[in-house]
Amino acid sequence: MRRSADDRVFRITTGMFAAIVLLLVIGIGFELWRQSMLSIDKFGFRFWTGRVWDPVSGEFGALPFIWGTLYSSFLALLLSTPIALGIAIYISELSPGMLRQPLAYLTELLAAIPSIVYGLWGVFVLTPIVRKLELLLPESLRRTPFFSGPPLGVGMGMAAIILSIMVIPFTSSVAREILKNVPIAQREAAYALGATRWEAIKVAIGFGKTGIIGAIMLGLGRALGETMAVTMVIGNNPQISPSLYAPQYTMAAVIANEFTEAADDLYLHALIEIGLLLFIITIFVNFISRFFIWTTKQRMERPA
């Protein structure tokens, strides 16, 4: 009897600590919502479509920041996805066994470097290089809207490059784990049919497709919320432009730059509303990502 009583106390006490984690997630959402009421009530849907961000006259439209966040993350994924998948395939399928561990460790080291160090390196080392590359671009391309404007180094393209480097380790490590767990029978069947090594790898990728999409979305979640490095290299200019040369702005960057300057409540609430949207988007993206990875793992654990 003593034992079952102890069991119950143990379960409830530790459960209360576990509930803190749950309450935190709910609490973050609730507090952000509560502290952005002024802006939500005043602007409503206009907040998301407005292009004017003018704290002095109290006019807040967040579209340029939303555009900047989505566009920079999209471009970053465009660059990082092939590289991250290439790394995952190389490490799990192609590399000599001796190199496997060190390479996995080194690529994951990219995730351990603080954002501020990426920013510092971006500002002082990468920006001059990117500016040189921008100057080298042929005139015919410079006339397209994607490369219009003066080559400054800092801007959307630069932010996308830094972001892509930062999300590579997240995508590649999950994709690698998924490839590793694809049942060996899948590849053996391909080889038995006379497939080349690459064709067998394609079969494995096809089998883990959902999970690999999950891995890419995990990277997307990181890119959307990345703050310091992006703030330091994107140019911080709220404009909506497809140009990679144009200095633009992101949701996280405007929060980082303006939050301590928010003198009146409406301004503060408008910034917190941006944070709320960022919270909702990243939760949504992470939810889908985890779900995809989870279902793939479930499928792989089942005997083929």
């Binding site: 997630v25 952000l32 995990l218 959307l224 919270f279």
Partner: peptide, 26 residues
């Protein structure tokens, strides 16, 4: 309950650090 908490921990892990900063500010 455990799977809900585990999921919450994963969600929390994906919340951008700047948003967590806002929460601490509030």
């Amino acid at each position: 309950f455990s799977s809900i908490v585990r999921f919450a921990a994963d969600v929390l892990n994906g919340v951008p650090s700047i948003v967590v900063g806002m929460f601490a500010y509030i």
